[in-house]
């Protein structure tokens, strides 16, 4: 049995007290416990940012990649050994800014991994500049006169990029987030979980309180059907007085790995390479 304690490292996180990242780490560990995943079968891959430090504080395998580059590493780990559970984490700058190209393509590719975005609508580690999800007019160190561009809408983007599992969580509601992460890991395909993660140090606007007053859970609306993409799109654009969290959309389609005969018998990493017979290839050149 995987326990919460064995996933916990001796070192304590260095995040600011009260930061939303704490809730996400707790939720991830709880989800792994609930799924009873052996810790050596899990790889957490991170980008750079406050969020990117997460894998240091969870006792699983980890690859700490470059800024914006968690997804290509994570997808390849899964392709090389599809028996592993691969979870990518990163910030909104990491995933929706510098890593945006990888994000879009990873979703349509549908490699079976889970992607948790710590969406704090600000650049934390670099001490408070605007991020791709910062709201229009938002004043930061880099936008002292207010952000001019409207924000990226990750949920709508994901829906249009054929993401097969699209969800939004809130770092202030850990039990709900645990459920989403569990579903995301269980989902066969690429699962996006965008997590509203208040940065208590640099984001004065999108605070815990801000979200407590606005969020509602999609699953509490009995009329909502998360297999209906049109409905999902409608909710994806809801932001302001009311902000939906929960599962927006889910569909079952083949994963990228399912389409690869190369690994239909066994994972790539288990295939022997000590003697590769290339006689035919040489013959073809003659």
């Amino acid at each position: 049995m995987t326990s919460f304690e064995e996933l916990t490292t001796k070192e304590r996180p260095t995040w600011c007290p009260g930061c939303g990242d704490w809730g996400i780490l707790t939720a991830l560990k709880k989800a792994l416990v609930e799924l009873n995943l052996p810790k050596h079968q899990v790889v957490v891959v991170a980008g750079i940012g406050c969020s990117g430090h997460l894998p240091q504080w969870i006792n699983t395998y980890a690859f700490h990649s470059l800024h914006g580059r968690a997804l290509p590493v994570a997808q390849a780990i899964k392709l090389a050994n599809h028996e592993l559970n691969v979870i990518a984490v990163g910030g909104d700058g990491d995933g929706y800014g510098i890593g945006m190209g990888h994000f879009i393509h990873a979703m349509r590719r549908n490699v079976n991994i889970t992607y948790i975005v710590h969406d704090n609508q600000i650049y934390g580690l670099t001490t408070g500049q605007a991020s791709p999800t910062s709201e229009k007019g938002f004043k930061t160190k880099s936008t002292p006169h207010g952000q001019i561009e409207p924000p990226v809408n990750p949920i709508a983007l994901a829906l249009s990029a054929d993401c097969s599992f699209v969800a939004r969580g809130f770092a202030g509601d850990v039990p709900h987030l645990v459920k989403l992460i569990v579903q995301g890991i269980q989902h066969k395909g690429f699962a996006l979980i965008d997590v509203l993660q208040p940065c208590v140090t640099f984001n004065y606007l999108n605070t815990f309180d801000y979200f407590y007053r606005r969020i509602y859970k999609l699953e509490e609306d009995s009329s909502y059907d998360p297999t209906n993409k049109q409905e999902a799109f409608k909710r994806a654009f809801e932001w302001g007085e009311r902000i939906p969290i929960g599962l927006f959309y889910k569909e079952n389609r083949k994963t990228y790995e399912d389409e690869l005969p190369q690994i239909s018998q066994m994972p790539l990493v288990k295939q022997k390479i000590d003697f590769v017979d290339i006689k035919n290839l040489i013959e073809e050149m003659c």
Partner: peptide, 19 residues
């Protein structure tokens, strides 16, 4: 891949996993 940045990171990821 979508670009060369992804290509090299994928090669690194696969190698980390053991191939």
């Amino acid at each position: 891949t979508e670009d060369e940045i992804a290509a090299i990171h994928m090669a690194i990821g696969a190698s980390f996993a053991g191939v």
